[in-house]
Simulated scan of single mutants.
Amino acid sequence: MSTEYKDVRQHILDTGMAIISGKGYAAVGLNEILTSANVPKGSFYHYFKSKEAFGEALLDYYVTSYLAHLDEVLRPDGTPAARRLMAYWSRWRDTQSDCCPDGKCLVVKLAGEVSDMSEAMRLALLRGTTLICERLAASIVEGVADGSLPGPYDAPHTAVTLYQMWLGASLLTKIRRDRNALEAAMLATAAMLKLPADTIHA
């Protein structure tokens, strides 16, 4: 794959990401993305077979970027795993309670919209969320090993339960336009992990 190919394809993805993060998938037409990216429609179909294929690639790209950030937050750095895990939830609370679409979770934004619309995009979301939960479960296991999480836990089940709770809290935040659901999720996370309430300030 040539550098030029990768650069143009990436430019289309970056442009689409910025627009779709604010408006959603169905509300955004290809013309809007291509006009903003200054790319002709014929060139778009050189990189993506359809808008659905673009949406799938966009979700894969988002998940790859998200996992890289998650790995950076959770990677062993000499601090307790519990502190790093709570820092992840703390950042989620702070970014998802902001009204600005920048930094908003694309899974929260698109899951309900595209899962019934596109099987390919649903599967991209499923792959991505599965990988996220695996990372969280590994961090829980590490926390038990280093003594920062009291345990015992069923780490995979706990990770999925926490992730589901935070997705739901993020959706309620969009509906209510306040951060109460995310604050409640922080408290519930600390309780589920058997940590003191002051851990939410990690």
Results as ranks from 00 to 15, higher is better:
Gly103Trp: 10
Gly22Glu: 04
Ser65Gly: 15
Gly147Ser: 03
Glu113Cys: 06
Lys194Gly: 14
Val73Arg: 06
Lys104Phe: 03
Pro76Met: 06
Ser115Glu: 03
Ala26Pro: 03
Thr35Tyr: 11
Arg122Tyr: 08
Arg135Pro: 00
Ala111Thr: 08
Glu142Val: 05
Asp7Ile: 07
Leu106Gly: 00
Ser50Ala: 12
Glu134His: 09
Asp94Ser: 15
Gly112Met: 08
Gly103His: 09
Ala68Thr: 09
Thr161Lys: 07
Leu13Thr: 02
Ser170Cys: 01
Thr189Tyr: 02
Asp154Asn: 15
Leu162Thr: 11
Ala155Gly: 04
Gly78Arg: 04
Ile20His: 01
Ser115Pro: 03
Tyr153Trp: 09
Thr173Cys: 11
Gly55Val: 05
Glu134Asn: 06
Lys194Val: 15
Asp7Gln: 09
His69Thr: 01
Met186Tyr: 02
Lys109Gln: 06
Pro196Thr: 13
Ala124Arg: 00
His157Lys: 13
Lys41Phe: 12
Ala87Phe: 01
Ala82Arg: 00
Arg9Pro: 01
Asp77Trp: 11
Pro156Met: 14
Thr158His: 02
Ala18Leu: 08
Leu123Met: 10
Ala57Gln: 03
Asp71Ala: 12
Asp14His: 10
Cys133Glu: 07
Ile33Ala: 04
Tyr163Met: 13
Thr158Ser: 10
Leu136Thr: 00
Val73Ser: 06
Pro40Asp: 06
Ala197Trp: 05
Leu34Lys: 10
Ile20Trp: 01
Ser115Arg: 01
Ala26Phe: 05
Ala197Ile: 13
Gly24Pro: 03
Thr129His: 06
Asp116His: 05
Glu119Thr: 02
Thr95Asp: 13
Ser90Cys: 06
Pro150Thr: 09
Ser65Ile: 11
Asp94Gly: 08
Ile132Leu: 05
Lys194Trp: 11
Tyr163Arg: 08
Asp60Pro: 02
Ala18Phe: 06
Ile33Ser: 00
Leu193Trp: 06
Leu85Trp: 05
Tyr47Ala: 08
Ser65Ala: 15
Leu85Glu: 02
Val114Trp: 00
Ile140Pro: 04
Asp102Trp: 08
Met192Thr: 14
Tyr47Gly: 00
Pro80Ser: 07
Pro152Phe: 09
Asp154Arg: 09
Ser2Cys: 10
Ile175Arg: 11
Leu193Lys: 08
